Computed example of a mutant assay.
Amino acid sequence: MEFRLLGTVSVDTFSGPLPLGPAKRRSLLAALLLSANTPVSLARLTESLWDETPPLHARNVIQGHVSRLRALLVGADAATYGVELVTLGEAYLLRVPETLLDSERFEELLLLAREQSDPADAVLMLREALSLWQGPALTGAFTGPPLQAAAHELEESRLAAVEELARGYALLGEHNRAAALLRTEAVAHPMREALAAALMTALYRAGRQSEALEWFHRTRRLLADELGVDPGRELADAYALILRDDPPPHEEPAGGRDGARNAPAGPATARRG
């Protein structure tokens, strides 16, 4: 049994996905999974299922979805996996081992990757972590404000993992691979300066200076047209490095490839969206 938040909200079993039904039931499941093994109040669930004034019968709607979800879990022998949906007064609690939840495994793999001294090992773990994503987080759920915030936070973690993976490729001298990875995300997030700067640097390190400069001018125009601002320091610094034609850092560390393999990967930081 596996619970998925990194893509369509779902519960996979050996006989196939559980028929969760309407979006609000998926929202209920998502809210419970995001606080797995912690009671979630009726008030919190109400905020998650409605982004406007809830109906007078909201409590009954939630109770109905809880009953149906509990029946689905019981029918799938969830208890044998240590999974149980219980009522605790004015709250509900979904007991589920963290190993059955894709978002928890994703975060665990990120932590393990950051502990590796060998970039090659970190790259393997980051690729495994990102393979857990099957689409935008919480797809198929009706996302009230709490779930919208949770989906945004999960997406920020995914983008941080992508940027870390690109840095890992760079440490291994695989700059074209880093550029291909970053280009996909930079196209999807054209206003995210950190991605644009990382892509420019990867292209430059791969010997594709004209493409790197083109990406800077493209991003600069978007920032001016959409936000009325100039490029921030990170983007400007990447542009200046390319114009100076500085030797790409970390391309050939002391000790050659072995030196690169022993260089620790930097920690993820929040990127401006």
Rank of each mutant, 00 (worst) to 15 (best):
Q134W: 11
Q134L: 12
G135K: 07
G135F: 13
P136F: 04
P136M: 03
A137F: 10
A137R: 04
A137D: 03
L138H: 05
L138Y: 05
T139N: 12
T139G: 15
A141H: 00
A141M: 02
T143K: 14
T143N: 11
G144D: 04
P145D: 03
P146V: 03
P146S: 06
Q148C: 06
Q148R: 13
A149W: 08
A149F: 11
A151F: 04
A151H: 06
A151R: 11
H152M: 06
E153G: 05
E153H: 12
L154H: 03
L154M: 14
L154R: 00
E155A: 11
E155K: 00
E155C: 07
S157V: 10
S157H: 13
R158K: 15
R158C: 05
R158I: 08
L159T: 01
L159C: 08
A160N: 12
A160H: 07
A161L: 06
A161E: 05
A161H: 00
A161W: 04
A161V: 00
V162D: 03
E164L: 14
L165V: 11
A166T: 10
A166G: 14
R167V: 05
R167C: 07
Y169Q: 12
A170G: 13
A170N: 08
A170S: 15
A170R: 02
A170K: 03
L171S: 02
L171M: 10
L171N: 02
L172H: 08
G173D: 08
G173V: 05
G173H: 02
G173S: 08
E174I: 10
H175G: 04
H175W: 15
N176S: 13
A178V: 06
A179Y: 00
A179R: 07
A180K: 14
A180F: 11
L181Q: 10
L181W: 09
L182P: 00
L182V: 13
R183I: 14
T184P: 04
T184Q: 15
T184N: 14
E185L: 08
A186F: 01
V187Y: 09
A188P: 13
H189G: 07
H189Q: 10
P190L: 08
P190T: 14
M191Q: 14
M191R: 13
R192M: 13
R192N: 13
R192D: 07
R192L: 09
E193A: 09
A194F: 06
L195N: 01
L195G: 03
A196I: 06
A196E: 02
A196V: 05
A197L: 09
A198S: 09
A198R: 01
L199R: 02
L199P: 12
L199W: 14
M200P: 03
M200A: 12
T201L: 08
T201R: 04
L203D: 02
L203R: 00
L203E: 02
Y204P: 00
Y204G: 02
R205M: 06
R205D: 08
A206S: 10
A206F: 05
G207N: 10
R208D: 12
R208S: 09
R208C: 10
Q209S: 15
Q209T: 15
Q209G: 09
S210V: 15
S210T: 14
S210M: 13
E211K: 13
E211S: 15
A212C: 11
E214T: 15
W215T: 04
